[in-house]
Design a protein around this nucleic acid. Structure first.
Length: 153
DNA sequence: GCCAACGTTGGC
DNA sequence: GCCAACGTTGGC
């Protein structure tokens, strides 16, 4: 099993929006970064555990946990000219963009702000904390996942 | 709202 | 294939 962190702007889609989705499941649409896509397309497996991070808000931080429910399939919003995620390079016979479906698992009792993550010695290696990091889907270590879950209790 | 960091685009 | 220009991300 692998461990991941995904970012979302809560103004756009928050962990409560995920919780309120039908069956707590949503397609993680709109990712338009190749590295992030490759993680979703090639490496995320059903049952993997995922931290849900709120970005571009005050304060940013980890809000809870979800799981991979459905493995890689094409991101249909790329085919839709009306969608803000439309990409004319992607065609249904040869899709460029892929996504996974994630399922709500739990919300932390304590929201963990970025500042708290930065202050933890065990988390200093996390990609999330590296300067200039912009990846919205990234792998994390089990030890990091466990540390953050403990902080969120 | 600013701006540093990074990814993508496109001319050459 | 290089690299300048541009657009986006996301913390602050």
């Amino acid at each position: 099993m692998k461990y991941w962190l995904i970012k979302s702007e809560p103004d756009v889609f928050s962990i409560d929006d995920l919780k309120d989705s039908p069956s707590g499941i949503t397609s993680w649409e709109g990712v338009r970064n190749y590295q992030a896509r490759n993680f979703m397309r090639d490496e995320m497996k059903k049952g993997d555990l995922v931290l849900f991070y709120h970005s571009n808000c005050n304060p940013p931080g980890v809000a809870g946990i979800c799981t991979i429910e459905i493995e890689s399939h094409p991101d249909l919003t790329a085919f839709d000219p009306e969608s803000r995620y439309f990409d004319p390079k992607s065609h249904s016979d040869k899709p460029v963009w892929f996504l996974v479906d994630v399922k709500f698992a739990s919300k932390f009792n304590t929201f963990i702000p970025l500042e708290k993550l930065r202050s933890k010695a065990e988390l200093q290696q996390m990609k999330l904390l590296q300067r200039g990091n912009r990846l919205s889907v990234m792998p994390i270590q089990k030890t990091e996942f466990d540390t953050i879950c403990e902080m969120g209790k």
